[in-house]
Design a protein around this nucleic acid. Structure first.
Length: 460
RNA sequence: GAGGGUAUAGUUCAGACGGUUAGAACGCCAGGUUGUGGCCCUGGAGGUCAUGGGUUCAAGUCCCAUUACCCUCCCCA
């Protein structure tokens, strides 16, 4: 053995998930999967890596920079000691051809374009996989994290958007969230507002991202931000007056209707939201859980219609889920537009928030029984009993080394295994197994041929 | 891309003005109990004080650089 140690640290923005953490992760993921499947959504997985041109140009300039890019084989740049004389990169494609996937929506679009003949539309799929962002990590933000997407492609119906929003509600509710808000808006309405306020196309991105910060930096903050971008004060006033419209969604939408008058895009957006809100109002969801929020814009460039995200007030961590309609994105791969809508659930953030709010009871182990090994002579007895219990479908662990009993019991105790089987000479003589309840300390001698039945009865 | 913080045992952290064998808690190992865990008691292992350089008679402590991680902004799940 070498006494040299490799310094251990996880790369920034990444984490190891130890068994105790995996239990809660799996629990949450399984619950989410079950709900997706209940609504008729089916699983999909795609590779970690994609061709770079599949990824770029979908997330905006900022997003493109955050894609992890992979050095092409054969550039020589991955070798040490090789002189690369007069090596000039004129195009990143010369040295990079692949990237790690940045989200699950773009790969979905690629899949739809590639396998259109095998897919029945509307295509309702869910996908739970890690994605990577070359970001600077901070609270609630990682460089490798799981996303969990549900989308429906091939339907323009607002029922699809409504169904997605309802699923988000059901998932958060089922996970135990009490206070959250699903904010809903529409890109068409935002575009109409920008048009109405006569904001130039090239400034629309800045304006939208400033407005999006409304609940974070307040009205004054937004005004400052917009002034910095040389937006005329009159325009700012006009803009904020609309964004800050008050009242129920109906009142807001009607007011927007008056403002837009003949604006076709704007009116389309209004009609879409009216439909979604109508469906929502007919459900069991308390209206406190969703609202029309005209300041919501969402960063990704590809959204074309209704957009939505869910947030919690405490702790401050950004959004838990986010999504919207993207009717043009698949067309970038296929050549013909396929309407689509969907959302992404941030599993990491959901878990972080649930942990911070103490919403997750700790699971120490999922093993129900430890079978101790008394000595070499009785080893086979323990093996037999272990397999008998396992074959009945109960999680059981066999202690391999015939160490002193206190070691074996201490192990069960530390791991939190609730029951222990002891098979020593006394038990063997009587053809019995001693079963100890680690919580109460109670012990019972059970007939060998009744052991499975007994374990079943106490572990249910 | 801009700014701030931190780096000492497996882990979380102490180490006033630089001064002799670097500490605690938890965890780990052994024993107290060779058929009984948790609690308690006793003992033990474990640190080139992130790396490299500098100042000094003397550096974990002061200075510089490097690296890593954390946090804030931008942006996002």
């Amino acid at each position: 053995m070498s006494n040299r140690k490799i310094k251990t640290f996880a790369p920034k923005g990444t984490r190891d998930f130890l068994p105790v953490q995996m239990f809660t992760r799996n629990k949450i993921i399984n619950l989410i999967k079950k709900i997706f499947e209940k609504y008729g959504y089916e699983p999909l997985e795609t590779p970690s890596i994609e061709r770079l041109d599949v990824l770029t140009g979908k997330y905006g300039e900022e997003g493109d920079q955050l894609i992890f890019k992979i050095l092409k084989r054969g550039t020589g740049l991955d070798k040490v000691g090789v002189e690369l004389k007069e090596f000039t990169v004129t195009d990143y494609k010369d040295i990079i051809d692949l990237g790690l996937k940045y989200d699950l929506t773009v790969p979905l679009c690629r899949v739809i374009a590639m396998h259109k003949d095998k897919i029945t539309f509307p295509f309702k799929r869910y996908q739970i996989q890690p994605v990577w962002r070359a970001d600077k990590p901070q609270k609630g933000r990682y460089r490798e994290f799981y996303q969990c997407d549900v989308d429906v492609a091939g339907s323009s119906s607002m029922l699809a958007d409504f169904e997605i929003i309802y699923m988000v509600y059901e998932i958060l509710k089922t996970l135990g969230f009490k206070n959250f808000l699903i904010r809903i808006n529409n890109r068409k309405i935002l575009n109409a507002i920008l048009e109405h306020c006569k904001i130039e196309q090239n400034k629309s991105f800045f304006v939208l991202s400033a407005i999006d910060k409304l609940d974070k930096i307040g009205k004054k903050g937004v005004i400052n931000e917009l002034k910095k971008k040389n937006i005329n004060e009159k325009v700012i006033d006009n803009l904020l007056e609309i964004i800050l419209l008050e009242g129920t969604f109906e009142q807001k939408l009607n007011e927007l209707g008056h403002i837009f008058k003949e604006n076709k895009i704007g009116n389309e957006g209004i009609e879409e939201l009216k439909e979604i809100f109508y469906y929502l109002s007919k459900t069991d969801i308390d209206s406190d859980f969703y609202s029309l929020d005209l300041s919501l814009s969402r960063g990704l460039e590809y959204y074309t219609g209704p957009i939505y995200e869910s947030v919690v007030k405490e702790p401050k961590i950004g959004s838990l889920t986010g999504g919207g309609r993207y009717d043009k994105l698949i067309g970038m791969f296929l050549g013909e537009d396929v309407p689509a809508t969907g959302t992404s659930l941030g599993i990491e953030r959901i878990i972080d928030v649930m942990t911070e709010l103490n919403m997750i009871p700790e699971t120490k182990t999922i093993t129900k029984v430890l079978i101790t090994t008394f000595d070499e002579n009785l080893k086979q007895e323990s093996i037999n009993t272990t397999w008998k219990i396992r074959n009945s479908g109960i999680n059981a662990e066999l202690f391999f080394e015939p160490l002193r009993l206190n070691k074996q019991l201490s192990y069960a105790n530390k791991k939190g295994i609730p029951f222990v089987c002891i098979i020593g000479p006394d038990e063997k003589k009587q053809n019995k197994v001693k079963v100890k309840n680690m919580k109460t300390g109670e012990e019972k001698l059970i007939e060998n041929n009744k052991i499975v039945e007994f374990i079943k009865s106490i572990t249910d």
